[in-house]
Structures are given as C-alpha cells and as structure tokens.
Write a protein that binds this DNA or RNA. Structure first.
Length: 272
DNA sequence: AAAACCACCAACCGCGTACTT
DNA sequence: GAAGTACGCGGTTGGTGGTTT
C-alpha cells in the first residue's frame, strides 16, 4: 500500500558503488543472508537505500552471477522465452542460471531487439515493441522465478535437438494420441484447452507441444491443460521439478485465459 | 587530436503486490 | 479490514568507454 520510504534521498549515496561499499554488502550478506535490505543498509552503515543494496547484490555481487558472453544457446533461449513471455525479464532470467533480469533486459535492448528487428522476414522471432496496452501487467497471472541448477540448464541446451515437432491441432483433435515423450518436457506454460481460437493460433505456430495428460490415458488430466514449449526438453528427477511447480502455479490462475488470449494474439500478429 | 556520436550497462525510479502489524 | 512496510519487477536514465568524423 504505502510507498517504500527507503529511497529518501537525503544523505544517501547514489551512483556507482565503491569497492568498500561492495565489501560491506558482501560481508553482511555472507553472515546474515539475503533479505531485510533496509536493515542491512542501516546496520552496515552503507549510505544506500535498501533497494539499492538489493539491486547491487542481485545484479552484481551475488556469487553465482555469470557475467558477459551470452552464448548462442542462451541467446536463442532468450528469444524464445521472450516470444512466449514478453518483457517478463525476471521470468526469463529465472531460466538462465547466473543471468539477471537486468542483464537480459539490457542485452535484449542493445542486441537482440536490434538484430531481430532487422529480420523482418522472420515473424516467428519477431520482436515488435510492445504496445502500451501490452505492457500492462496481465491480470490474474503470477509467475515466480524458477531457478534451474546449472546441470539442468545444460541439459536443456544439450538436448535441444531431441525435440519432437508435433502439430497442436492433431494432438488436440485426438484424445487418444500417442505419447510424444516423457512428461519432463512441460516446463514453460500451461494452456487451457478450451479456447478454440487460441488453439487455432497455436497450431499454426511452430512451437512444440506436448501433452502427457492427454496422451497417457486418452483423457485429459489436470484441468484440461496442454503444455507448450518453445522446444526445450526435459528433466526427470524425483520430487517436484521447478517447472512443474511453475506449471501448477500457472494452472491455478483463475484468469489465465486472459494470458492465453494475449499470447495467442501476440503470436497471431507475428505471423502477419 | 579532439569533438561528436554511439553503444553498453549499472543504477535509479515508480508502481504493484505480498506480507506484517 | 486497514494501514504501513518490504520487496520485486519493468522501464528509463545517465555515466563511461569506444568509434567515427
């Protein structure tokens, strides 16, 4: 409700962080862990607002940060995820271990947007700027960051070739379709199977779709959901995977259809 | 050599929302 | 339930270094 008061400007340092400030922040987080950023700023004597401390830690000082040299695989993943998710940088970053939302956002704005705008003949990777309307948060959709351990991430990249192309329309028109693959593929999003318009749009789009719920027993399990990926496989480990957690969370959203329609219209526009 | 321009990216800002009192 | 606080997110800004003229 009330606005964050931590950024009152009086007496606070602004601009680039000094080495000493970094060390103070690192040492404090080592001892006390992340969070309580405002308290951190006060206790360490840093003349920074809590928000600034958090940002510095998350974007620069965190030990697992991977900096620079975004690989071709990472770039491809960013493009695909952006196609699906739009400017949800934090969500995209959650699928690129060691990368921050800020870094991906910067990379997008300075490299990919430009590069891909040049490729106007390839609408599937189209990156037209979002209209103001599309920039609004989508009601009813909440997605948390999901962290993939590096080994899993690597498996995503390494097995990228093992995908099965399939036609969404076929899957959806046949309730007894053959299983496409193991159930570890579904890590991006769930889509409500009830929306024909969306399905039409999606079926014309060259994403890889997998629906283990449909395939396993000829019935649709788990709330009429299909799973859509932009071609990433596949983890199989005991316990709930991050992606299944995400899937569950998404499928819990009562107004998720809104998101579906936006995605569909987004894809549809790109095809034009 | 220097001014102008450009690109990159760290940091800031405002807003929304979850959480706490 | 209301008010206050903390945090997270996406858009934007501005400093800096590199390149071009």
């Amino acid at each position: 409700m009330g606005r964050n008061q931590c950024c009152a400007k009086d007496g606070l340092n602004r601009g680039a962080w000094s080495f000493q400030e970094d060390q103070l922040l690192i040492n404090y987080v080592k001892i006390h862990g992340e969070g309580k950023w405002r308290t951190l700023a006060q206790r360490t004597g840093l003349k920074r607002c809590g928000k600034s401390c958090r940002l510095r830690w998350l974007n620069y000082l965190r030990p697992d940060i991977k900096r620079g040299n975004i690989s071709a695989d990472e770039e491809d993943l960013i493009i695909r995820l952006h196609n699906l998710l739009g400017n949800r940088w934090a969500l995209i970053a959650g699928r690129l271990p060691g990368r921050t939302d800020n870094e991906i956002k910067n990379y997008w704005n300075t490299n990919l947007a430009k590069k891909l705008n040049d490729q106007t003949s390839k609408p599937a990777i189209g990156l037209r700027p979002l209209k103001s309307e599309e920039k609004k948060p989508i009601e009813g959709l909440k997605v948390d960051k999901t962290f993939f351990p590096p080994e899993k991430h690597q498996s995503i990249l390494n097995t990228n070739e093992q995908l099965i192309n399939c036609d969404i329309g076929k899957i959806l028109s046949s309730s007894t379709s053959t299983p496409l693959q193991d159930d570890s593929l579904d890590f991006l999003m769930d889509f409500d199977i009830s929306d024909d318009l969306i399905l039409d749009d999606l079926s014309s789009y060259s994403y890889h779709i997998y629906s283990n719920e449909i395939c396993e027993n000829g019935d649709v399990v788990g709330g009429n959901n299909i799973h859509m990926y932009s071609s990433y496989p596949s983890f199989s480990e005991d316990g709930p995977s991050p992606e299944s957690e995400m899937k569950r969370e998404l499928s819990d959203q009562p107004t998720f259809n809104l998101e579906l329609k936006k995605v569909a219209s987004f894809l549809d526009l790109e095809d034009e």
